[in-house]
């Protein structure tokens, strides 16, 4: 908590995985009690997974923030170091984005066709959309890390905004 550390976010991710695992164990338990695996989630599972999801996102962005913004800020302008590796990564990610978008549209077309023999499952629709969003996020992150000039301000405490 003293600086923008990696310890707390890393623990958040571990904790998130533990919560998801607990939610999975709840399924096993319900299945053992009732003799079948329920199609719907129990309220307990939804709660565990909701907290797991928040902690996972928090841990992920926390680690990313440490990578992109550093543990401690120092006032001034900081120019990025040019390198060709991020360009290659960017090209590969862009190609992956094009592929994921194409596949996503394909699942939508298939889902719209009521007579389709294999309607695309929702996990595939959601997963492809998630992949698209994640790739765009990574592209922006790479751009910020390797191509954007960073500026750190040390502003006067008394601001004019909004009043």
């Amino acid at each position: 908590m003293y600086r923008n550390d990696t310890v707390v976010p890393a623990f958040a991710i571990i904790f998130a995985i533990a919560l998801f695992y607990m939610a999975y164990l709840v399924t096993q338990r319900v299945a053992a009690l009732s003799g079948h695996t329920p199609a719907e989630l129990t309220v307990g599972q939804i709660g565990l997974m909701a907290f797991g999801a928040v902690l996972f996102m928090y841990g992920f962005i926390g680690l990313l923030s440490n990578w992109l913004e550093g543990a401690e800020l120092r006032p001034g302008k900081h120019e990025p170091e040019a390198s060709s590796v991020p360009v290659v990564a960017g090209v590969i990610l862009s190609l992956a984005l094009a592929a994921a978008s194409g596949l996503f549209v394909r699942t939508l077309v298939l889902a719209a066709n009521k007579e389709a023999e294999f309607p695309p499952p929702t996990w595939l629709q959601g997963g492809l959309f998630a992949a698209m969003m994640l790739i765009i996020a990574l592209l922006i992150a790479i751009y910020k890390k390797f191509f954007m000039a960073e500026e750190v301000l040390a502003e006067d405490e008394k601001g004019e905004f909004p009043w």
Binding site: L41, M49, A53, F56, M57, F60, I61, L64, T122, W123, L124, Q125, G126, G127, F129, A130, A131, M133, L134, I136, A137, I140, A141, K144
Partner: peptide, 18 residues
Amino acid sequence: GVLFLVYVAVTTFIAGAF
């Protein structure tokens, strides 16, 4: 912006799978 995209990615994945 990055966090918003990560949010949409993680939640859409969960929403589709469960």
